[in-house]
């Protein structure tokens, strides 16, 4: 039962981690992140439907297509606003979300785009003592694989070290000769690509319609704020926490569930404004 919550948490993690890293790195309030997840989800679902791509191939396609689109947007538009006020960033990204929503509605209509899972992922799996949905298990395994991969990437690769340095102290990183602009672009592309994966993987759970970009935005933001900016593991645990909490509350406290989540978020943010796992020492 709890597994459903953990699986939802994995989706939250996969979408939000890119947001956390880009916000931490660039200090950019990117409210359009959910929009990239939505675009990716559309690309994945439609590629399967119209081009007959397999699920995994379609995920890869969605990742690459969204990452590529985000690079274009980042270089052309986002980059102009890195030093702008928070309000301008908020307005710009809200505007971007509106454009995405309206474009998808015009092209594909306002209805939900159903994701058809490959047969192997449908149905239940028997673990001996209990039965689970296969897809939930797949999501959990995927999520764990991604967090391990990201963690290794962060800790062990040159790019990861550069990102960590730049999150902690951008000026220092710059003076060490790290090309910040290039780092931003790469990180932004990776983050958007991850969001696209999350959009595709989660389409079965969360649905996929043009309102997706706004509907779940608050959840993504909560995960990032609680997890801390630029913290892969922080976001992972925050996403699990919120995912499980949401799932359990929906079951046992269907009325007050969201209220409880907001209250928990407020308390956590007041207690640790840098996020539960944020702060320089983490």
């Amino acid at each position: 039962m709890l597994l459903g919550g953990i699986a939802a948490g994995m989706i939250l993690f996969i979408v939000s981690v890119g947001l956390s890293v880009t916000m931490g790195l660039m200090g950019f309030v990117n409210l359009a992140h959910g929009g990239f997840a939505m675009l990716g989800g559309y690309a994945i679902v439609l590629a399967m439907k119209h081009w007959g791509l397999g699920f995994v191939t379609a995920l890869a396609f969605g990742f690459l297509a969204t990452a590529a689109a985000s690079v274009v947007l980042e270089r052309l538009l986002y980059a102009r606003l890195y030093r702008a006020t928070e309000l301008d960033q908020v307005l710009f990204t809200i505007g971007l979300v509106f454009i995405m929503i309206a474009s998808l509605t015009l092209r594909f209509g306002p209805e939900n785009q159903p994701l058809t899972l490959p047969r192997a992922l449908q149905g239940q799996i028997d673990l001996g003592f209990v039965q689970y949905r296969t897809y939930s298990l797949v999501l959990i395994v995927t999520g764990i694989a991604i967090v391990v991969a990201l963690w290794l990437g962060f800790e062990r690769t040159r790019l990861g070290a550069q990102i960590r340095a730049a999150v902690d102290n951008r000026r220092m990183a710059e003076s060490l000769g790290i090309n910040i602009a290039r780092l931003f672009t790469i990180t932004f592309a990776l983050g958007s690509g991850m969001a696209a994966l999350g959009g595709g993987l989660g389409a079965e759970f969360l649905g996929l319609d043009p309102q997706y970009a706004l509907k779940y935005l608050v959840y993504f933001l909560i995960v990032v704020a609680v997890g801390g900016l630029g913290r892969v593991t922080g976001v992972f645990f925050a996403a699990l926490l919120i995912g499980v909490l949401d799932f359990v509350l929906k079951k046992y406290l269907p009325q007050g569930g969201p209220m409880f989540i907001y209250a928990v978020t407020i308390v956590l943010l007041l207690w640790r404004p840098q996020g539960l796992f944020g702060g320089k020492a983490a």
Binding site: L77, R80, L81, A84, D88, Q89, L91, F92, I94, G95, L96, V97, F98, I99, M100, I101, A102
Partner: peptide, 10 residues
């Protein structure tokens, strides 16, 4: 409206 917001911000 989205386009307008982008233009204002930029």
């Amino acid at each position: 409206l989205g386009l307008l917001l982008v233009v204002i911000a930029l």
